[in-house]
């Protein structure tokens, strides 16, 4: 009576449910077995050795017998009680698992917070308001390399590790390229900002003097000349040359990493990739050169 009350949750008797389910499952499988046996007896004389259906049924027969034995055992009251008891223990285990999972998550969260703290530390040592122009890109690059890039360097494992590594490379190189590109575009924007300011200052002083030009084209020419001068002086600077070199290098790295993935996917379709073609081109180039050299030697001998 006590057991029965314990096994009843919200008015549903779990013992009855398990009983019903096991009985009905057993009946289904019994009927399948009986049916198959009848069919088997009917056909046995006609095709004894070659009937693959029969063979495959035989392969399943032990499994069905095991199921029947298992179902009979499960149908016993003691077994059902122990299952319910097992459920309680399972809940406790689940709690343990959840606890350790949360502790693990909390550990990683702590690590991420440390990374975030490091990033904040870098920002604190370089207050944004003190960062002039391109320094913000250097700072971001620094943060990216120290705190973010390492996640793309986690060694991948298993059969597909090569492909995972290549995907990680593309993401990493793409991020670096886009930062360098932004920095380069920022450099190209600087002369606009400076020339507008110079022109505005000039106009203000011309307005004070009452000597503003009356032709709008003169304003345009004034700005254009300033823009050109600022570009020219910037183009000669070491900072610009460095930024140019970096963006070209980053572009090359990104394109190269992307090409690796494209080549892998093309290979899976059986399409020749650039590396294959390059090898072929190299062979053709060498052969043509050799033929030309032989032709010239032959011409010399003839003449």
């Amino acid at each position: 009576m006590e057991n029965t009350r314990e096994n009843t949750t919200n008015g549903i008797n779990s013992e009855q449910i398990v009983n019903t389910w096991i009985n009905s499952a057993s009946k289904v499988w019994e009927s399948i077995v009986q049916k198959s046996k009848k069919n088997d007896d009917g056909r046995s004389s006609a095709s004894a050795d070659t009937d693959t259906g029969h063979e495959s049924f035989k392969a399943w027969e032990p499994a069905m017998k095991t199921w029947n034995e298992f179902a009979s055992a499960m149908n016993k009251k003691e077994m059902i009680d122990s299952m319910v008891e097992g459920n309680r223990a399972g809940t406790e285990n689940f709690h343990k698992l959840l606890k350790s999972g949360l502790e693990g998550f909390s550990f990683f969260q702590k690590r991420w917070l440390e990374s975030a703290k490091n990033i904040q530390g870098i920002f604190n040592s370089h207050p944004i308001e003190n960062l002039g122009g391109s320094e913000i890109f250097d700072l971001f690059t620094d943060i990216y390399k120290k705190e973010i890039s390492k996640f793309f360097s986690i060694p991948p494992l298993g059969l597909s590790r090569e492909y995972q590594a290549k995907i990680q490379q593309v993401i990493d190189k793409s991020n670096i390229f886009h930062v360098k590109l932004l920095e380069f575009l920022y450099f190209l924007y600087i002369p606009f900002e400076k020339s507008f300011k110079v022109v505005q200052d000039s106009l203000a002083s011309l307005a004070d003097e009452g000597t503003l030009p009356d032709d709008s084209k003169q304003y345009y020419q004034m700005w254009l000349k300033q823009l050109e001068n600022h570009y020219m002086s910037m183009f000669k600077s070491t900072e610009y040359r460095t930024a140019l070199g970096k963006v070209v290098d980053a572009m090359s790295d990104f394109m190269s990493a992307r090409q690796q993935i494209i080549q892998d996917s093309m290979k899976s379709f059986g399409i020749p990739v650039e590396n294959d073609l390059d090898e072929l081109y190299k062979d053709i180039y060498t052969l043509k050169k050799r033929i030309r050299s032989l032709e010239r030697e032959a011409e010399k001998k003839e003449s």
Partner: peptide, 20 residues
């Protein structure tokens, strides 16, 4: 010329290995 100055800081090997 700017080209003369810019070309000195370009890693042409890396570029050509990538671009062909």
């Amino acid at each position: 010329g700017l080209l003369h100055s810019w070309m000195k800081s370009v890693d042409v090997d890396r570029m050509m290995d990538t671009l062909g």
